[in-house]
Design a protein around this nucleic acid. Structure first.
Length: 266
DNA sequence: CGCAGCGCCTGAAGGC
DNA sequence: TGCCTTCAGGCGCTGC
């Protein structure tokens, strides 16, 4: 599932290829999740930005083309349109190349809105500071976490205290910080530790080109390498790398969380 | 407004 | 071998 490191990897690859390009044509799957991709036809891409897990192409007509990759989404630039039943949207550029959006499970979404008008994208509108931006501070993070009594893992995945964290990197950060995923309140020192762990987990993932468990591919179609560096996610039953006790997994709020009962006490 | 619960999707994996 | 069930989960929506 694409989280901040995967989306940022794609952004860095797409940016030099898309900047300055005019969108000549577009076609999409019939779902209203994807049809807004067609609204960008005629506009020129000024820059490719990212906020949390949202990729945002800034257009020269004062609008933004917003893409969320969901669970299985990927973007690639290709000289010819791939014959692939899972391409849900594509844009033809003025250099005759194509930007193709592939999404097997159709959990992703595409929007085209006036700049900054995110009422149609509530999660983007309401999300906290991007995890790799200077706005993500230990103080603000602790304050944001104190506003809710939900489980810490649920809060991390809500995108509100910080934007860009999904289950993989959230699991890694909680393990690294020694915090139980079901904890409902954490101390200031624990919040500071978790803040550092979130940044570290995401930067490590980015340095490794993202995590490919099954579907993730970057804009060149390559797999990430961070799946080999995961300490906790997907390792239930295997020994904790700190204390050798077998890692456990439990379902909290409809998602599977892996943790070490020894290193991450309640 | 916060939050719990459900639905969206499909391929893979496991049971029989 | 083949059919059926379960699972993965980010996010939008509904209703309390």
């Amino acid at each position: 599932m694409p989280e901040l490191p995967e989306v940022e990897t794609i952004r860095r690859q797409l940016s030099p290829r898309l900047e300055g390009r005019r969108i000549r044509a577009a076609r999409t799957h019939e779902s209203e999740k994807f049809t807004p991709a067609q609204d960008a036809v005629g506009a020129r891409v000024r820059a490719v930005d990212r906020r949390g897990k949202y990729l945002i192409a800034l257009l020269d007509d004062g609008r933004e083309l917003i893409v969320h990759l969901g669970m299985t989404g990927s973007l690639a630039i290709t000289p010819a349109l791939p014959r692939d039943p899972y391409v849900r949207a594509w844009w033809q550029l003025d250099d005759n190349e194509f930007l193709a959006y592939r999404d097997v499970r159709r959990f992703g979404r595409i929007h085209c809105v006036p700049s900054g008008h995110y009422s149609a994208v509530p999660t983007l509108a309401g999300q906290g500071p991007d995890a790799l931006s200077p706005d993500f501070t230990p103080e603000g993070f602790h304050l944001a976490l104190r506003k809710s009594r939900r489980r810490i893992a649920t809060q991390l995945l809500s995108q509100k205290p910080v934007a860009g964290v999904g289950n993989i990197y959230g699991t890694e950060a909680l393990w690294a910080a020694g915090i139980h995923p079901a904890a409902r309140q954490i101390s200031r020192p624990a919040a500071e530790k978790l803040h550092a762990a979130v940044v570290q987990a995401l930067e490590a993932g980015l340095a490794n080109g993202g995590t490919t468990l099954r579907d993730y591919r970057n804009a060149k179609g390559e797999r990430g390498r961070h799946q080999h560096a995961l300490a906790c996610y997907g390792r239930s039953g295997q020994p904790c790398l700190r204390c050798a006790r077998p890692l456990q997994h439990r379902r909290y709020d409809a998602r599977t969380l892996t943790f070490c009962a020894g290193c991450q006490p309640r």
